[in-house]
């Protein structure tokens, strides 16, 4: 199995874990998690993040800040898959005696922050990156943003700050799935032209097909060598609900899990779409 095929399959394995977790819990942001499956697979299993599941507090680990905290079922699935905790704990997601709920919480091994308030994680990540600069540490800080959270003013405060401070150890990945709760972003309040906005804030901008493992690997590989003076953002064009056709591009699926026949159909679609690695 080559690396790309391995990661493409891994993304679908993660999707299935997320779906199973959310179906059991009857809640969770399924579609927000599906759109970032390839991003997360590449970061954690594609050799991008330097991390060690046996030492979640390793001082020199790369930091990963999930700023779109709604995708916590995906991060929890990734962390379980990587061995940060027993996968059986996923079954308790958002249920009585469970260890974690719908939004991200810092008590989970491997989760750096409590998150769910949009526009929060990004600035926190910039603070961590600044600390690394001050202490001459080599770790990188990666943060995953949602496009919806770019409506928050705090995102742009941080964007301005990070480029001025030349935080080239900060890498943002923007899960551009084009949807919020009620509607498509470009219908109700346009975010485009996104690249120009980030460029004008002083960021190195790369725009890629966000469901493409090779494209993501290409964009994220080598940023550690810091050839550029400022921070980098990878705008990853994705599909909200990717992998489950009937949940894709349907705004009102935000924040809910399929049940009954729809649950079966969703899992069947993921099985069918899983590449044969």
């Amino acid at each position: 199995m080559n690396d790309i095929a391995f990661l493409e399959k891994k993304a679908y394995d993660l999707r299935k874990k997320v779906l199973d977790t959310c179906i059991r819990a009857k809640t969770g942001h399924v579609t927000s998690s599906m759109s970032c499956a390839e991003i997360m697979a590449v970061l954690y299993f594609g050799g991008i993040l330097r991390h060690d599941p046996k030492r979640p507090d390793w001082a020199d680990r790369d930091r990963f800040i999930l700023s779109k905290g709604q995708a916590s079922p995906m991060l929890y699935s990734v962390l379980a898959e990587a061995g940060y905790f027993d996968e059986a704990q996923l079954k308790g997601f958002a249920q009585k005696d469970g260890k974690f709920g719908v939004h991200l919480q810092q008590s989970v091994p491997g989760a750096e922050i409590t998150c769910g308030s949009l526009g929060q994680g990004f600035g926190f990540a910039a603070g961590m990156a600044l600390a690394a600069k001050m202490d001459l540490k080599n770790y990188m800080v990666y943060t995953l943003l949602g496009d919806g959270e770019c409506y928050e003013g705090s995102i742009w405060e941080t964007a301005m700050f990070a480029s001025h401070q030349r935080l080239n150890n900060l890498v943002a990945i923007l899960d551009r799935n084009y949807q919020c709760v009620l509607d498509f972003t470009e219908n109700f309040l346009a975010l485009e032209p996104f690249e120009k906005k980030w460029e004008s804030f002083g960021w190195n901008v790369v725009r890629v097909e966000g469901q493409s493992v090779p494209a993501l690997l290409d964009a994220l590989h080598g940023l550690r060598s810091r050839r550029r003076p400022g921070p980098t953002i990878v705008i990853a064009d994705t599909t909200k609900g990717a992998g489950i056709d009937f949940m894709s591009c349907v705004p009102l699926w935000h924040g809910s899990a399929p049940a009954g026949n729809e649950a079966k159909q969703a899992m069947a679609e993921l099985e069918r779409n899983t590449p044969n690695a």
Binding site: G123, F124, A126, G127, A129, L130, E157
Partner: peptide, 12 residues
């Protein structure tokens, strides 16, 4: 907003 966030990241 960014001030509190950056300070908190530094504190972490």
């Amino acid at each position: 907003q960014n001030g509190v966030l950056v300070a908190s990241g530094l504190a972490r």
